[in-house]
């Protein structure tokens, strides 16, 4: 549905997007990830024909962004970084205006406006001036205008920025429910959002493509080693953590054991081992030594860690800032 070929954007001296190529299939939701200044917004602006690329091209729904921009624009719904609202219009007349801009026929118009108001829960601000809306509502109206003409492709630049937690969830649900009929590209800094909503991730850093893959593949790729969390309890009310640790270390395939938490009779250990080391061995070792095994849980490496791993070498400060943001949300 979207195919990006060697897309490049150069601002006077600064290479904002550097030969990026990737494909998005119909019906997919793709998360566009990267630290601040990575070039996400710039790439999206080129895909929506707002900015012309310096080199390379892309096609959306089979139309080239350079050759047939009007056809591309007809098929795209776009939520820019700052929702493009006219402060002097009220929500309803704004949505009607956008619908007409996008070519919705007069007879469909009331239906579409009603529909997007429901989908984006902005019914209660229908008659309010846009200039008087709160940040979250502005964002919702922005999302509503992006889907008003039922476009094939949705390009959303940080769709959940500024929303409250409940609304973030509703928006993610909305985005997920739009997938299938619509192809969606969304940019975000919030990694759990990608894990929850997207099937595929495109990671860029400093204008360069770092990785594109499915969320699962990325997780397992970075995992390389498997991490387990094990809780061991002593029978008689106390537990010698050091003894447990040295016993666990003797299991074949285990490369590192660390004590995470120690209570009187219980200890939580994190065990890192080669992929596929035998969990049975681990369980048996614990039980045969006379301890109880309370919990044995593989902990997948979070996308956040993968992301940091992928972008860290290149840009540590930005990546840290991003990690901090990710944790906040």
């Amino acid at each position: 549905m979207i195919s990006v070929k060697e897309l490049t954007k150069k601002y006077s001296r600064n290479l904002a997007v550097d030969h990026i190529s990737f494909e998005v299939q119909k019906g997919e939701i793709v998360g566009f990830l990267g630290p601040n200044g990575a070039g996400k917004t710039t790439t999206m602006r080129m895909l929506t024909c707002f900015l012309p690329p310096s080199a390379g091209t892309a096609s959306v729904a089979g139309f080239d962004i350079l050759e047939q921009p009007l056809e591309v624009k007809r098929r795209i719904g776009y939520l820019p970084e700052t929702p493009p609202l006219y402060p002097e219009m009220d929500t309803e007349s704004y949505l009607a205006f956008v619908a007409r801009l996008k070519g919705v026929s007069k007879s469909d118009l009331p239906k579409r406006v009603k529909y997007v108001c429901e989908r984006c829960s902005i019914g209660d601000v229908r008659h309010k001036l846009l200039g008087k809306l709160s940040k979250g509502y502005r964002q919702r109206v922005g999302l509503a205008q992006a889907i008003i003409h039922n476009p094939d492709v949705l390009i959303l630049d940080e769709p959940t920025a500024g929303l409250d937690p409940k609304q973030i969830n509703e928006t993610r649900d909305l985005i997920r429910s739009l997938a299938g009929d619509h192809t969606i590209v969304l940019s975000t800094h919030i990694l759990p959002e990608v894990e929850q909503t997207c099937q595929k991730v495109v990671i860029i850093n400093k204008g360069k493509l770092v990785a594109t893959d499915t969320v699962q593949n990325l997780q397992s790729r970075a995992r390389g080693a498997e991490i387990m969390q094990v809780e061991v309890a002593g029978r008689n009310g106390n537990l010698e953590a050091a003894a447990v640790k040295s016993r666990l270390e003797r299991i074949t395939g285990v490369s590192r054991v660390s004590l995470k938490q120690s209570l009187d009779s219980r200890g939580v250990f994190e065990i890192e081992g080669q992929k596929g080391f035998v969990r049975g061995d681990l369980a048996r070792a614990v039980v045969e030594s006379g301890w109880d095994l309370n919990e044995l849980r593989p902990t997948a490496m979070s996308l956040e860690e993968i992301f940091l791993q992928l972008t860290q070498q290149a840009a540590p400060p930005a990546a840290e800032a991003l990690a901090a943001q990710g944790k906040q949300s």
Partner: peptide
């Protein structure tokens, strides 16, 4: 205000 982005990404 950035609304130019709406106009120029609409099929006009």
């Amino acid at each position: 205000s950035g609304t130019i982005e709406l106009l120029t990404t609409s099929p006009l």
